[in-house]
Each structure stands twice: as C-alpha cells, then as structure tokens.
Design a protein around this nucleic acid. Structure first.
Lengths: 362, 362
DNA sequence: TCAAGTACTGAGAACGTTCGCACATTCCAA
DNA sequence: TTGGAATGTGCGAACGTTCTCAGTACTTGA
C-alpha cells in the first residue's frame, strides 16, 4: 500500500510555530485566533497541502454530516429521481450521501443498514421493503437516530414519512378509463407482500367497502384498492382474473403477466399498471403482441416516466412528484438531525393525472 | 440533540470482565481470543446492543472501506446503470458508496471531490466534466489516492480508465443509416467542450482524415467524429447545418435543436443522437411535430435506453454496457485499494448496434 | 490604580477503536 | 527436561481532530 502523504494539524502547527490547538482553531474556524496567526497558519496549511480529516473530526463532534439512504434499486427512474431530490438538499447543507440498494429484500436491507450505522450516519432515509416485519427499524429508531421513511410507512413505527396518495391517484386513473367506456380493465401489480387473507379476500372486502387505506399498506395494494374503489363507485363488478400479481419488482414478471392477459380469450380493453417497472414490462408485452395503443388496448400507468411523454401516442399516467418527495424527506431528516423534537409527521403528496393519447373511447 | 445511546468496546469489556483489548479482539475478530472469552464477550455485546464505530476503526486502520463517486447526474439511465454496477461490486466487497452529482460543472465537481476527500474515501470513481482543465484530479492523484475515470479520460492523467469505443460505435450506427440510403442525416450532440479551432474546423479536419480519436476527446466529439468518418467512408459530403451542438447535457437543448432541424426547409431524412439525453429531447421534438418514425424520419441513438425496446417501432441504438462499465471500474478501483501497483490500464468497451424498426430504406 | 472584562494562546484530555509490546500459559517435538 | 511455537491476555500508545480549562496580555471604565 502506497503511503499516502497526510499532513495533519500538528504538522501545520509546527511549521507555523503555534500549538496544535491554535492551528486547529484557525483551520476549523472555531474559537479565537489573531488575524496575524490566522493568516500565517492558513498560508502554511495551503503550502503544505493540508486537508482536514473528517473522521477525526466526526469522532469527536459526534456528527458525520452524512446521511444514509436505502433505496430499492437506484436504476429505476422512481428511485433515481428521489435520490436526486435528496442529494440536492443534502448538498445544500454540506451533507454527504451514502447510498445502498435493497432490491426489496429484507436481508439486503438489514445488511445495508448495518453498514450505514457502522459508518455513523447522522440519519437515515429508508424505503422499507417490508412494512410489517421491521423490527430492525424499530431498534434503530430506539437509538434516537433520525429516520425518515419514503414511499412506504411501517406499521407502528413513529417516524417521519413521505408518501403519495396512492389509492386516490389510482382511483382517479382507473376512473378515467371507466368514464371512457372501459369495463374490462386489466391490472398488473407487484402485490408481493400478501395482505392477510389473500388477494381474493382483499378484492371481496374492498369491493364491499370494508378495506380502508392504511399508510402501512404496501403501495401496490393501495393502488389496487384504488382500482377496486373506482369500479365500486361506477357500480362495476370486478373480474379477478384481470388482476395480475407480478409477485416481484421486475419488469420481466410484469411482462409475463401482461402477455398472459393480452392473450386472454376476452382480452381486456384497457390496462392499468401500478408503477413504472410494471409499465415497462407491460409496454414490452404490448409491443411484442403487435398491438397498437390506444386502438387495440388503452393504458394508464402509475408514475409518470420520461418516455411516456414522447412514446406515441403518449401514455397517460399518474405523476408522483418523485424529486419533491426526495427533497422533502431530506429536509425532514435534516431538521431532525439539527435537533428538532417536533411530533413525527407524515407528508402525503398528491399525485396528478396526466392525460395523453393512450386512452380510447369505447 | 438527543443523547444517542452508545455502547463502546470498553463498556462491553467491563461488563464481560475483560480488558478492552481482549474485547476488541473478539468484536473485531483479529488476534487471539479463547473460545470461552469469545462467547462471553459476544454474549455481553449482544445483550448491550454493541455496534462498532467505524469512524474510530477507520481513523486507526487508515481505511474507510468507502469509495467516492462523482457522477454527472444520477437521474439519467446512463449514470444510474453505471452506479448500480459500481454498487454491486462495492457491496460484494463490503464497501460503502458515497455518491455525488457534478451536473457537468467544474465547480460542483471540485466541491464534491473536497467532500469525498474529507470523508477519507479509499478511492474515487469520477466522470470528469472537463477533460483538459483537471488540475484538481492531478493533485489528488499525486496523493496516491486511487482514481478510476469512467466514460471520459483526462489528458495526461495516468490513472485507470473505463471508456467506450465511441467513434467506432457512432460510425457503425451512422453507417447503417447511410447503407439504408440516407444522405442527409442530422446530428444532435452535446459538444459542450469546444475542440480547439471550433466545430467548423473540426468537421473540415475530420473529413480530411486529419483528426484521430484521442481518449481524452470528449465522448460527444468522438461520436461526431464517427458520424463524419462514416460519411467519409461512403464518399458523402458533410452539410454542417445538419450538425447541431446542444451545448449542454439537457434534453431541452436537444429538443430545441431537433425542432429546428425538423422544420428545416430540406428536412433531414434521418437523425443521429450522441447520447440518451439527446435522444429524449429529439424524441419529444419528433412527437410534437407529429412525425412518425421511421416513415417521416429515421433515428439512431447512442446508448440504448429501456424505452427504445418497446417504443414503436423500436428505436435502433448503439448499446454501451453501462452496468458492466461501472462494475469494471469498481473492480479496477478495488484492486488499487488492495494495493495493486500494476501499470495503469485503460479498459475500452465495445458498444453493440441494436437494430430495431426506426430505420427506413430510402 | 484597580477590577473586570476581552482577545488570544497552549497543555492536555477526550472520541472509540486497533495495534505493538510484554507477559503467561499451554503444547509438542527433540 | 528443555526450549520454542502457539495461544491467550492486558497495558498503554497511537489515529487526527475538537474542546475544556488555565493562563497571559491588553483594553476599558470608574
């Protein structure tokens, strides 16, 4: 290992003929220092190429000015935008960002959190992959380390949260399809964390108006609830064979389900996808089947991805303010880091329906 | 500020009735420790909820097991994929990732590097925003801190690099257009760091075969060179009014240039874009103009983005192995971090032309 | 002229680890 | 037996900062 030249405060102090304490005061700009010594020390520091060692500083100050993030997969536009929002706010406050991926796996998430804790981050922004089995998050929260949850809430965990109005957004989107005359609308959704009683039971209960949105309900389930509510409001029955759980956050799974749905004897006249990854899988299936939107099938997706604006004929979507969600989460976190003891708050962002050419009248 | 419960090795040692040194050996799993003491100490540590403090460890070991990354903009698929490649390799080796954005601005890049250096990262992966004015990178490199450059090389900076065969890839792509009978091919390219002599001069020299690809040439210029080379090889003249410098990494700028190009009296029959961001801007312009690909205009883009596969009629593209580039960069860096003193190497990845339906015969 | 500030400085103790060293004990081959 | 590994333990010094505290010099107001 090459020896890395490291100039310390002591070196600077010696070269400048002052004590390390004084040099420290100048270079860390705290406490008193005469103008003349200040100039002298800074000059020497520059000449020697002094660079402060954040580790030593953090060890003593107890703050690293670093925040840790656990995202699902930074490759997706969803997380990438959120991260950029977080990053800009962090930057503004001189904070660094330690970023990890969970791939929606609990073991990865726990490993990532261990890593972040060990690196002594000042706070965490987490998109938890399990909204129920989250004992590790409870434990971390008990140590008083600030946590902000994003996209999903965890049952019984009293920390700040940023989420979207999922059920309402989905209901609005599906409502558009229904108003356009569609009655057989397919859904491709993750639905990976099963709701108690299973999917059939969920549909039944929801259609009977017995299911209430819980913040800790998984987003794709909330969006499915919106789908069902839209049907209920319009007095439409639900054909559960049109509801396709991909079972994972992969566009391949979505692709498979969509292909199956599109080769159905009574093909649905419209599709609804519960997030960007599902939308991509579904788009691929539609393209491969040689179908044309909206002539052969209409489409609305949750989350507005870049390509939806220019892919003919334009894909209608529910747009969540991803960047703003990230930025808001970061701001909430930094408030806590700065010592705020305000009661925990949940910020719920309202998604917006963006009408484009992907919905045909029937 | 809430007092964060912090259990130290000393606490564990005391509770377990051993010295801090012994407890340290057990918890850090280095040096000797009897089975019985090991069990005793780990049991106590677990009970007290001990968590190692990475700062203290790093301060003494001199390694943080963290690598710093300076990307252009993590929101783009280009950087997001690269980052994911880096992240997976880092993860595999127990390294954390400190991620920053430069937005292709030198001052941002320098600020980001300062932050990363202060946090004592073990190495850097940088996509430098200026391939010539990079004194700060030279300075950092002199401190022996391992650096790997990605996507772009810096003139005279002897560090490991991962780049793509830009000129060759672009030449192949434009060659496809020419072989399909296109003679008026528009280009939308960043071209923000001007080549000496300006763009006109560059075109002239390139067409005369006087320009050789330099690794430190900015990617968009290399790709423009490929465009020109393809023309030269086919014996076609260059109409410089078809070459549009966006001047920045923004799809808005690309959009503007493309719109202008498409309303040209003699509209080009095909377009070539030098990267994903340009492709998005161009797609938007095409959609807004109500043009249909490939009937009204053919299109090939550098960098294969997700949506190109399913956006009708499928957009042909030069695919760079983004994820693999990131992973390779991370591996090269970790080799250096582990002490490798092999001569610096440049890994050049070969892009692949992906034929889809966006090229019409003329 | 004295007391009470204000400006500045340095010694030395933190922070929570790892590491070098010294010392004990055990084990095994010669 | 004997001596040299191998194994196990503790002391105290690092690592490079910040921070407390004591102390000095200089100003100021009564």
């Amino acid at each position: 290992m090459a020896t890395r030249s490291k100039v310390t405060i002591a070196d600077v102090a010696q070269a400048a003929g002052v004590s390390t304490a004084t040099a420290g005061r100048v270079l860390g700009s705290y406490g008193y220092a005469a103008k003349s010594t200040r100039d002298q020390v800074t000059a020497v520091a520059r000449k020697l190429g002094y660079r402060p060692n954040g580790l030593a500083r953090s060890l003593i100050t107890g703050e690293t000015r670093t925040i840790g993030v656990v995202a699902g997969d930074i490759r997706t536009q969803f997380y990438a935008s959120i991260l950029r929002g977080i990053s800009d706010v962090a930057d503004e406050h001189g904070f660094g960002l330690l970023i990890t991926n969970s791939d929606e796996r609990l073991d990865h998430e726990m490993r990532a959190l261990d890593l972040l804790m060990e690196k002594q981050v000042d706070g965490l922004i987490v998109s938890p992959c399990d909204t129920r089995k989250a004992r590790h998050l409870h434990r971390i929260s008990e140590t008083q380390l600030p946590i902000v949850l994003i996209d999903r809430a965890v049952e019984g965990l009293a920390v700040d949260q940023v989420t979207a109005l999922n059920a309402e957004g989905a209901e609005a989107a599906v409502g558009e399809l229904i108003r356009a005359g569609h009655t057989r609308i397919g859904v491709v959704a993750e639905l990976l964390e099963p709701e108690p009683g299973g999917i059939e039971r969920f549909i039944e209960d929801a259609h009977a108006g017995l299911v209430r949105t819980a913040k800790s309900m998984y987003p794709s389930w909330q969006r499915l609830l919106g789908y069902i509510n839209a049907h209920r409001a319009a007095g439409l029955a639900i054909d559960s064979s049109l509801i396709r759980p991909a079972g994972s956050y992969s566009s391949e799974a979505a692709h498979r389900e969509a292909r199956d749905l599109l080769s159905h004897a009574e093909r649905p006249s419209a599709l609804f996808t519960t997030d960007g990854t599902m939308s991509e899988g579904v788009m691929r299936a539609i393209a491969e089947a040689g179908l044309v939107i909206p002539r052969d099938v209409s489409l609305v997706g949750f989350d507005d991805l870049d390509w939806m604006a220019f892919t003919p004929p334009g894909i209608s979507a529910i747009s969540q303010p991803r960047y703003a969600m990230g930025a808001a989460a970061a701001r909430m976190l930094l408030d806590r880091v700065a010592g705020s003891t305000a009661p925990t708050s949940g910020l719920t962002m309202t998604p917006e329906f963006i009408k484009r050419g992907s919905i045909a009248r029937r």
